[in-house]
Amino acid sequence: MNKQTVQLVFCVDDRFCLPLGVLLRSILATTERTLSVHILTQGVSEQHRQRIEAELCSPHEVRWYQVDSAGLENLSLSAAFSQRLSLATYYRFLLGNLLSPDIDKVLYLDADMLVNEDIGHLYDSNLGNAIVGAVSDSKLSDEQRWQHLELSQPYYFNAGMLLVNMTAWRSMDVAEQCWQWVERGIDFAYNDQDILNLVLNGHVALLDTRWNQQSHGLRLQQGGIVHFTGAEKPWHASCVHPLLERYRALWHDSAYKDVAAEHALDAFDKRSLQRLSQQTNNQGAIWIYGAGQRGRRLAAFLQENLPQLNIKGFVDRAQTGQFQGVPIVSALPHGANEPVLIASEPHYEAIRQTLLAETTDQHRIITL
């Protein structure tokens, strides 16, 4: 039997080219089919193009599509995602407009994914009369987001993996319906994903969750496709995901092997580091209050850029163990007199008040 070429679609800018390169490496390592890769972008540097194309030698092919900026002026990202995503996430609306009309099926994937099984099996899924095949969003389904959007069907899918019947997509003019929602100017918390759920409600075949294993409630660490849906990504220096070792191994075998992990610092992190520098002159030793994502990324940045500053430990009542050699303890040790950096934005003031009650030396607290 002649196996059908897998038509893959990605929407990226320069920020997401490295994870796309690693994702392609994972697909090539697990998938037997020939790949035809379609990349929608408003601008990718020539260096990134060369790296991506280096991953896809014959018989595979890659095609680049330039997204016209006209008509995209109304696009925006909600506050929760403005530092994590780019407007490229909306480009998938344009599948029917940009791809050749003779392509009748595509598999769209977000770049922040890792493939562990042959996606040819996913590509062959029977969609019946549905326009797309997708997987339920684990976190937002738990929160029953379909009720908030007043959807007629009791489900809410994650749009990071979409198996698309292109004939039906074009026939329903999904792109036009999506742009109509954009023009209404509604501030959707989940951006284009909310819009796709609204437009495609009742036209979705829910597929096995193994084809989009999201970080929330991750159950199958070797699922067909693992989706790094949290703010912490495996190309960040502070990531502790269960599949980090496999991801990094593929990364170091890819065209991006010479690129170092990045420090994804937000505005709060940068203010914290500025105040830390002012109060300690980046010398001596400190404690970090909080061993979650923020605490880890601050620690990873300090270890790489200010090794002369000794991190004695994390304070965190909910976690144990260590991170990159730094121990995690449930409370500041008795008699500890080093400065404390609070690694929590929503609970900053509550933690500060707790520390003030526990110490007579208020100058030990790195205040914002």
Rank of each mutant, 00 (worst) to 15 (best):
L24V: 03
D253K: 12
Y156S: 04
E358P: 01
R15E: 12
L250Y: 09
H203T: 06
G202F: 10
Q362Y: 05
W169K: 06
N97E: 15
Y247F: 15
G230H: 11
S100D: 15
Q362W: 08
H148G: 01
F188H: 10
P307D: 03
N97G: 02
A249Q: 11
R49Y: 10
L332W: 05
T34H: 10
N282L: 14
S82F: 06
V22F: 08
E143C: 06
Q147D: 13
W211D: 00
S36I: 00
L151Y: 12
Q153K: 12
V6S: 02
G96H: 00
L163V: 11
Q322L: 04
N191Q: 05
N158S: 14
L163P: 12
S100A: 15
A29Q: 10
I288H: 01
S69Y: 03
R294M: 14
V22S: 02
I286N: 02
D124K: 13
A300W: 04
G71Y: 06
E176R: 12
D258Y: 04
T359P: 02
Q319C: 03
E304C: 13
R25K: 14
D187P: 02
K233R: 14
T30M: 11
A318I: 00
H216C: 06
L94H: 10
Q221C: 12
E183Y: 04
M1W: 12
V37Y: 05
I342W: 10
V240G: 01
V6H: 00
W179G: 02
L355C: 06
S141F: 08
L95C: 07
Y155L: 08
V6M: 08
N305S: 09
Q274D: 10
V199L: 10
V259N: 00
Y156M: 03
P346Q: 13
H347E: 13
L109Q: 11
T320L: 04
E61Y: 01
V9E: 01
V12A: 04
R275C: 09
F228C: 03
W179D: 01
T34I: 15
E46D: 13
L163E: 08
E349M: 09
G43F: 09
D269P: 05
H216S: 14
Q193V: 06
R246T: 11
K139F: 13
L99I: 12
F314S: 00
I311S: 08
I27Y: 13
